[in-house]
């Protein structure tokens, strides 16, 4: 049975009312504040990743490291990116997805088709390294899934690119 007197007493009780109201409003407030903070952190990661990818792409373009352990391989590329990027972002070498494709031309038959990014922010296959030849165009795409998520907040908004991953792409020509 509902204790009517008890309910009435609770409804008209005014002690701790601010705390109760704050308990209701606080989550919304913190969600908003945390989102703003995470957006700032995500953009810091974005800039760090852009820079790391640009440097690694340059190494691919100039043919640095021609052995399998060098930059001319998927694992070498990840090492080159994460040497720089992992100082800012956690779990870089495991989480990084990449698509590195080379061809005689970007467009036309035999050209490069950019690897589509799924709405989950992933490449399929997750890693590609193919066709990089001296003098040829190269397209380098990298995705880094955000390691932190906030419940109820769409991460595609936080990364500002429509997917829950931080994405960096750069086009270059391998030095002849």
């Amino acid at each position: 049975m509902v204790n009517r007197a008890g309910v009435q007493k609770f409804v008209w009780e005014t002690r701790s009312i601010t705390a109760v109201e704050f308990a209701l409003i606080g989550p919304v407030l913190f969600l908003l504040l945390l989102s703003i903070m995470l957006m700032g952190i995500a953009q810091f990661w974005q800039l760090s990743l852009d820079d790391a990818v640009r440097n690694a792409a340059r190494q691919v373009a100039i043919g640095a490291g021609t052995t399998s352990a060098g930059v001319q391989s998927g694992s070498g590329f990840v090492t080159a990116v994460c040497d720089e990027f992992s100082q800012a972002a956690p779990n870089c070498s495991n989480a990084l997805e990449y698509a590195i494709q080379g061809a005689p031309t970007f467009t036309g038959s035999g050209g490069i088709t950019p690897m589509p990014l799924s709405t989950a922010g992933q490449f399929s296959p997750a890693t590609t390294f193919a066709g990089v030849t001296a003098g040829d165009p190269v397209l380098i795409q990298v995705a880094y899934p955000l390691p932190i998520t906030i419940p109820l907040v769409p991460m595609s908004l936080v990364t500002l690119n429509g997917t829950p991953s931080i994405v960096s792409a750069t086009a270059t020509v391998a030095e002849p």
């Binding site: 005689p104 031309t105 970007f106 467009t107 490069i112 990014l117 690119n161 429509g162 997917t163 792409a169």
Partner: peptide, 23 residues
């Protein structure tokens, strides 16, 4: 335009646009 398999300006521009992704 492309000269054989040598990329021309249009092709390089398209490649640079690939680099804008996901925008």
């Amino acid at each position: 335009a492309n000269t054989g398999t040598t990329p021309g300006l249009t092709d390089l521009c398209a490649g640079a646009v690939y680099g804008l992704q996901p925008f």
